[in-house]
Simulated assay, not measured.
Amino acid sequence: MNIKYYSRPGCGLCEEGIELLKIVQEDVPFTIEEINIETDDSLHERFMLMIPVVEKNGEIVQYGLLDYVTLLEGLAIEEG
């Protein structure tokens, strides 16, 4: 499973969020694709006020202030 993580450099919440996502990754196997929203104008416009954003299969799992329980539940759900 691949998770997209939208963030930007210099974002304190983003730095905390990626660390939390790595903790969740210890319990649920997935890869993290980090995407800098500042490299794409449409992503910047879409996510500028929301980052960090965790996305699974095109659906936002959580954004802003991330928490372990919500991420674990959102990422642990089996597809199918």
Results as ranks from 00 to 15, higher is better:
S42R: 10
E79Y: 09
I35K: 07
D67M: 06
R8E: 10
I77A: 14
M48P: 01
P29Y: 06
L65A: 05
H44Q: 14
V54E: 00
K56Q: 01
L21S: 11
Y6I: 01
E15D: 11
C14V: 01
I23T: 14
L13H: 05
V24A: 03
C14K: 02
R46T: 15
L72V: 12
H44V: 09
E55C: 03
V28T: 12
N36M: 10
V69A: 09
D41F: 07
E55S: 04
L21D: 04
E15C: 05
L75F: 14
F47G: 07
I35M: 14
E59V: 08
I3A: 00
M50G: 01
F30V: 13
E78K: 15
M50H: 09
Q25W: 06
R46W: 08
Q25K: 14
L71E: 12
E59G: 02
E19P: 02
T70P: 00
E45D: 11
N57T: 07
V53C: 00
V54R: 02
L66H: 09
P29F: 07
L71R: 06
L72G: 07
V69S: 05
L75H: 10
I77W: 12
S7D: 03
L20W: 08
R8V: 02
F47R: 10
L20Q: 04
E79N: 12
L20P: 02
E79P: 05
C11D: 05
F30N: 08
P29C: 10
P9L: 04
C11G: 07
E26G: 01
T70V: 15
G64F: 10
M1W: 01
G58T: 10
I35S: 09
D67T: 11
T31H: 09
Q62E: 11
D67G: 06
T31V: 11
I51T: 04
I23V: 12
G10S: 05
E34R: 15
G58V: 09
A76H: 13
G80I: 13
L75A: 04
K22F: 13
K4S: 13
G74A: 13
E38D: 15
N57D: 09
L75N: 08
D40Y: 02
T39Q: 10
E33L: 11
E34D: 14
K56G: 00
E34L: 11
G80P: 04
G12W: 00
D67E: 10
